[in-house]
Write a protein that binds this DNA or RNA. Structure first.
Length: 266
DNA sequence: ATCAGCACCTGTTGGC
DNA sequence: TGCCAACAGGTGCTGA
């Protein structure tokens, strides 16, 4: 479910609520919700959260010990601070010394908590952030160089750019008028420039609207986002293109629904 | 390097 | 009405 804008919204909401709090216990209600590549959940006990950020699609909690607790929500995960009542599908409860808690709730059980020692970016193997000022059109063009994979599929690969998911890949490519099936390595510098501009534009707007809620995404307050009302192509298969009135097509790329306008995306 | 297929899970929706 | 397949904001593994 959540992509960069949704994760950014959650991290921003959680930062003032969780920063400074000390963990006194972690209840794991579904074993596999803790990533076994990281440290055990109980190693968090006694540690204090000193900051909350987003890394790609991960919500990350910087700890006083220097370690990092990362949460990936995958499709249906939610992070709720100090839930007023018992939440359904609770998988992990992080309890704080003040009696409050942070809950990972997830219907489909795909979400993961991973506790990392050392550099989290390296451990998570994620690429550059689309909003990183170091990501210039030239740098993006260079990253795509020689890649024969389709641009839509390339955008979903978190080892290159980190944070783009299925909705915003379709949206940004529509905005940049680039067909999702174009080979990444064949795009020009000016394509890269347009694409980068579109990625930032679309996701900045989505963050402003607190993300897209198509099925069940909610922010850390438990409220849905508003950006789904503004989506230009995602989920609009068979409907007229908002730019040229041609019929929006749905294709399947890398087993994911992909939406584009066959007329104005070249 | 790249890709298809499947695995992980549950819930909702749309077709017959 | 009811059953069942298809599908869902993601990632990760296997085998070709």
């Amino acid at each position: 479910m959540p992509e960069l804008p949704e994760v950014e919204t959650i991290a921003r909401d959680l930062a003032p609520k969780i920063t400074g709090r000390t963990i006194v216990g972690v209840d794991v209600r579904w074993r596999r919700s803790v990533d076994e590549r990281g440290l055990a959940a109980r190693s968090l006990v006694g540690d204090t959260v000193v900051g909350v950020r987003r890394l790609g699609k991960y919500v990350t909690f910087d700890l006083a010990s220097g370690r990092t607790a990362t949460v990936h929500l995958r499709m249906t995960g939610r992070l709720i601070a100090d839930p007023p009542a018992k939440l359904p599908h609770t998988r992990i409860v992080m309890r704080f010394e003040d009696g409050g808690s942070l809950v990972l709730s997830d219907v489909r059980k795909f979400g993961r908590l991973r506790i990392i020692e050392g550099d989290p970016r390296a451990a998570l193997a994620i690429g550059i952030d689309p909003f990183d000022p170091a990501l210039t059109p030239a740098r993006l063009h260079e990253l795509m160089h020689g890649r024969r994979t389709k641009i839509k599929v390339w955008l979903l690969d978190q080892r290159r750019l980190a944070g783009i998911g299925n909705i915003y890949a379709s949206e940004a490519l529509f905005d940049a008028r680039i067909r999702p099936t174009r080979q990444a390595g064949k795009l020009t510098l000016s394509h890269a420039s347009a694409l980068l501009r579109s990625l930032r534009k679309v996701m900045r707007k989505a963050i402003y609207h607190r993300g897209s809620s198509i099925d069940d995404y909610v922010d850390a307050e438990g409220k849905p986002g508003e950006f789904q009302k503004k989506l230009a192509v995602y989920g609009r298969g068979g409907l007229p293109c908002r730019r040229c009135q041609a019929t929006i097509r749905r294709a399947v790329l890398a087993q994911r629904g992909t939406f584009f306008c066959p007329v104005c995306q070249l």
